[in-house]
């Protein structure tokens, strides 16, 4: 299978995502330049972290109009797997592929630390190798990760099971202190209704080896691989 990692001017986690997919997972990976309209036959597209276009205007607002994102939108709408990490999540909300918005952290500071995530939906393509309510240790690094949406829309997300990750404490308990940015309902990651697009603020690609402090993020990549294999078998069959 093949991963495509989008590089915007200002991306800074593209090489981490590349290394995770290529060297740790052992799959084929290609960088996708922001000015290109070619997804190079990628089976999964990663929108990596960073500060695309300097985060001018709003995080992700300019990236949305790049030629490659236009293609990513079409790819996602036709069922392709897309994962937006950190700035990539912000791009996905700006592009309308995911609902809601990411606003300034409630404490106004850039926050860079390990957090604990609880897997709320272990059925989707991005978490199918995890257990329900499994707790993952994965780092965050953002200033605008405060997930916001209108009350009734948050409820719709809750009702349809689109919340994939929530910030919790080390014991998996939902607490106010474990929420690093003020996100509503401790939301750390959501998926679209169809289940092929995920946005998450924490960085799974930075937690793929024990020597990095945690290898829990690898589960997201492994889940994607097994989801791809299942989809492929289903497609052939």
């Amino acid at each position: 299978m093949k991963f495509g990692v989008v590089t915007f001017p200002g991306s800074n986690c593209d090489y981490d995502a590349y290394a995770a997919a290529r060297h740790i997972l052992g799959e084929e990976v290609e960088f996708l330049w922001h000015k290109s309209s070619d997804l190079c036959q990628s089976d999964v597209v990663i929108l990596p972290g960073g500060f695309s276009y300097g985060d001018y205007l709003r995080a992700g607002a300019i990236a949305r109009f790049s030629p490659i994102v236009q293609e990513v939108v079409k790819f996602a709408e036709s069922g392709g797997f897309v994962i937006g990490i950190c700035n990539g999540f912000q791009v996905l909300t700006e592009a309308g592929l995911l609902p809601g918005a990411l606003i300034r952290n409630s404490h106004l500071k850039f926050s860079c630390k390990y957090v604990y995530l609880r897997v709320e939906d272990a059925e989707c393509a991005f978490t199918r190798d995890c257990d329900h309510h499994e707790v993952l240790k994965i780092p965050i690094a953002h200033g605008e990760g405060n997930y916001y949406h209108f009350k009734e829309d948050i409820q719709k997300l809750e009702d349809s099971g689109q919340i994939v990750f929530r910030y919790v404490d080390g014991d998996g308990q939902l607490t106010e202190n474990s929420n690093p940015n003020g996100s509503l309902n401790n939301i750390a990651g959501i998926r679209n209704r169809e289940g092929n697009v995920l946005g998450m603020m924490p960085h799974p690609e930075r937690a793929v080896e024990d020597i990095l402090g945690s290898a829990d993020g690898l589960k997201v990549f492994e889940s994607l691989r097994s989801a791809y294999q299942v989809a492929r078998v289903a497609g052939v069959g």
Binding site: I103, R104, N105, S106, H107, L108, N146, Y148, G182
Partner: peptide, 13 residues
Amino acid sequence: RLKDGVLDPQGVT
């Protein structure tokens, strides 16, 4: 401007 009801951390500060 932010819509009414949307937290404005900068304004609060």
